[in-house]
Amino acid sequence: MSWLLRRLAVSAFTVWAVVTATFVVFNVLPEDPARVIAGPQARPADVARIREQLGLDRPLHVRYGRFFGGLISLRPPADPATDSAVRIGGVGLDLGVSYLRRRPVTELLGKALPPTLLLGVLALIVQVVVGGVAGCLAAARRNGLLDWGTVALTLIGISAPTFLTGLLLQHFFARTLGWFPLDGYGATWGERLHAAALPAATLGLFGAAYYTRLVRDEMLVLLRQDWVRTAWAKGLPRWRVLVRHALRNALMPLVTVVGLELGGLVGGAIVTEKIFRWPGIGSLSVDAIVERDGPVVFGVVLLLASTVVAANFLVDLAYAVLDPRVRRR
């Protein structure tokens, strides 16, 4: 129990530290969002008014206090019309209002999260299915045509940066062949899945490449073990041995890989979402950074850091449940 509490405390600390560091970096950069909001041609007096309206004229510690002070509220909103919090039960989470879009950050994040989740889940499926199947097949047909074909493809997957894969997939499958939409999100679920194919492939391919080799190598070790040979000797079908034992083994490393890769996935998502005009967290954060939309940036960073920390926490928890020794460490 104390292990759990300590682990939770560490997680909370990590998120706090990440958000604080971002806040400090953003607020000491020698520039002023007010001028961006007012536009390049706005007159100084008008810029000053906007700065005042946004509270950007206050000292750093006041803004910091206001940001964290307002983050979580237990009271109901004073004025529902200007409230920028999202409420679950009686607890409100308030990330402020976007400077540029003038919408509550929680609302913007709420809108951007489903597309990114869809993309992430699909990419993960691509990674696991493609990686798992390819890895199994490659291992089963070791040194065959299939094996080296797979290995070659994984090498491309690992060596081609996301922006290169994305542009190529878009050009070839969307423009030349016309099988998928060039970009966009779509209104219905059917459209969305159709539109998600290429970005998910872009994002999943890198992971799939990595994962294929993971599975292939695990399998190769596995297939040389006695009990597998015994199973085959007993006349069990080859594919059944492969699927039964392979699949289980293929899913095992996934837990670790997902936890580790979330950060990388985010980096890839930024580029991918930009290329395919996918209205997710990546697009939101790039625009926010370019335009110095502070509240949106802090919101995104808070969300990302929490996700990574939560994923790691769950992985640790899973290990702890499976292996009691971890708890004593």
Binding site: W148, G149, V151, A152, L155, I156, S159, L214, D217, E218
Partner: peptide
């Protein structure tokens, strides 16, 4: 744990596909 491809053909194919 992971292994590298043992075959130069693999590399050649990779480059060819990209090409």
């Amino acid at each position: 744990m992971r292994s590298i491809p043992r075959r130069p053909e693999a590399t050649r194919l990779g480059v060819a596909i990209l090409g």
